[in-house]
Design a protein around this nucleic acid. Structure first.
Lengths: 251, 251
DNA sequence: TCTTGACCTTCACGCAACGTCAACGTTTAT
DNA sequence: ATAAACGTTGACGTTGCGTGAAGGTCAAGA
C-alpha cells in the first residue's frame, strides 16, 4: 500500500505539516518522491511512523527519537518491550497522581490535612526523569544500570510516610556528621552513629544491604564530585570523614 | 509557611524560571514582594501552584488554566473531581497504547498481523482531544455536554473489531446514500435502507437510540455546516436528502 | 479544451513555555 | 569584609509544529 502525505497523515492522526517536518529533519523520509515532487510513503514508513509516535508519546525529543530508530543496532522487539515498560511506569505514576487528587479532595473537604510536600507528590516523578536525563548516563556508567533503576524505582514507589522519614533521616545524618566531624575521630561514638544513620538512610534506597556495598559506596562518595560537593558543602573534608567512619563501621 | 522562588520551586519540582514566568503572565503572583523585590509566596500560592500543575499535567494551555483557576465561580472540589475523571481517562488510554505495543511485539515476532489502521490505535485519542479543542465548545453548546462526552467515551473505548465495523458502516452509509440520492425519492427503498444503516452507525456512538433523537440529529446535519460539508462533498443536497429520509424513517 | 477544486510543493513567519545566558543587586555565613 | 548563594530584570534561543502565501499537479466535468 502506498500513501501520499494526506493519506498517511489521516491514517496516523497527524498533520501533513508534521510529516513534512519529519521529512525536513530527516526523521521520516518518504519511500520515494514521484516525478512531480510528491512524497510517497510505503509500508516501511508506516511502521516507522508508528514507532516514532510511540516514542513521542513518552515525550522524547525528536532528535533523540531519530537516534533511537535510526541506530544501526536498532532492535525493534527490544525497543518495543522497553517502550512498554515505560508506558507501564507512566501509568503507575498516573496512579500516584490520582491518589494525590483523591487526597486533595479529602483535604479541601476538610477531612484530612496535607503537608506542602505531599501536595506535589506525583509531580516529583518529573524530577526523577530530568535527573535521569542529566545524570542518568554518568550514573549508569559509574554504578551500573541496576543500581540506578532500583534507586529510581524505590524513590517513585515510596509512600508518603517513608518520604518524610527519609528526608528526616537525611537531616539527621547531616547533623550527626557535623558534630562527629568536630570531634575529628571517625571511630568515635558520634561518627559511628552517623555511619549507622547513613546505613538506615541507605536502606530506603537499596533492596538489600551489605557491608561491602556500603563500604564501596563510601569510596565512591569521595571519588564522585557530586557527592563530595554535597557533603563538603558546610565543612570541607566531611565526605572523607564519612568514608572513614563508614569503613570502620562496616569492618 | 513562606517561600522564596527557589524554595517553592524545589518543593514543587519546577524551575525558578517557571515561577517567574507564571508571575509574568499573571498565572501565579507571589503573595507579596519584599523591599528588595524578592517574590514571597504563601500558603494560598502553594495550593494554587498545585492546581496549576494538575491542569498542566493534562496538557491544558496556561492561558486556559488561568481562566479556570481565576474564574470567580471556581469550585475547587468540583474541579478536582473533574480532574480525576480526566486522569482516569488518560490512564485508560494508556491501557489502549500498552495493548497496542503488545500487539506490535507479537506482530514483529510474526505471531499475528496488524492492519495499518490498528497500528495507530491509541494515538487516535489525540484526534479526539484535538477535536475537542477545536469543535468541543461549539458542539457542547449545540448538543449539550452529555452527548459529546458519551460520543467521545464510546469512541475511545471502542474495541478493534468495533472500530472496523464502524468505518465499514460509514462507507456503506455513504454508498447507499449516493445510490438513493440518484433515485431522488427519500421515501424509497434505498433511502430507507440508508437511514437504517445510519441508525446502526449511530448506535455505535449513542448509549441509547430513540427515533426522536435520530430525527433531531438529522435536522442538525443540515443546520451544521461541518456535517453538510461532509455529506454534500460528492453530491450537493445529500445532507438534506438524508435528513428527509431519516425524518420519514423515524416517523 | 478549459476550468474548477482538491491535492501537492516550498518558503517563511508565528507561537507557547520555558531554557539559558548576561549584568547586576541582596543576604548570609564565616 | 569577602565570598558564595540567592535574588532581580532583560533578552535572545529552542522545540515542534500551526498557519498562511504563492504556486505547481491532476482528475473530472462543462
Amino acid at each position: 500500500m502506498e500513501y501520499t502525505v494526506q493519506k498517511l497523515a489521516s491514517l496516523a492522526g497527524v498533520s501533513t505539516r508534521t510529516l513534512r517536518y519529519y521529512d525536513e529533519i530527516g526523521l521520516l523520509k518518504p519511500a520515494r518522491v514521484n516525478s512531480s515532487g510528491y512524497r510517497i510513503y510505503g509500508q516501511a514508513e508506516v511502521n516507522r511512523l508508528q514507532q516514532i509516535l510511540f516514542y513521542r508519546e513518552l515525550d522524547i525529543g525528536l532528535d533523540k527519537i531519530k537516534n533511537i530508530v535510526t541506530a544501526p543496532t536498532f532492535d525493534e522487539t527490544k525497543a518495543l518491550k522497553e517502550h512498554m515498560q515505560e508506558l507501564i511506569a507512566k501509568r503507575e505514576q498516573l496512579d500516584v497522581l490520582i491518589a494525590n487528587v483523591e487526597k486533595s479532595i479529602a483535604s479541601t473537604e476538610g477531612r484530612i490535612e496535607m503537608s506542602d510536600q505531599e501536595k506535589f507528590k506525583g509531580f516529583k516523578k518529573k524530577m526523577v526523569e530530568e535527573n535521569e536525563k542529566k545524570y542518568g548516563k554518568e550514573a549508569r556508567d559509574l554504578y551500573g544500570d541496576d543500581a540506578v533503576d532500583q534507586s529510581n524505582a524505590k524513590l517513585m514507589n515510596m509512600s508518603q510516610e517513608d518520604y518524610e522519614k527519609v528526608t528526616n533521616l537525611e537531616e539527621e545524618v547531616k547533623e550527626t556528621l557535623a558534630k562527629a566531624f568536630a570531634t575529628g575521630d571517625p571511630a568515635g561514638e558520634l561518627a559511628q552513629k552517623a555511619a549507622d544513620l547513613h546505613k538506615q538512610w541507605l536502606c530506603f534506597y537499596w533492596k538489600e544491604y551489605s557491608k561491602e556495598a556500603h563500604a564501596g559506596l563510601a569510596q565512591m562518595y569521595v571519588a564522585d564530585e557530586r557527592f563530595t560537593a554535597y557533603y563538603d558543602k558546610e565543612q570541607p573534608g566531611t565526605a572523607e570523614f564519612l568514608r572513614d567512619a563508614i569503613l570502620i563501621y562496616t569492618k
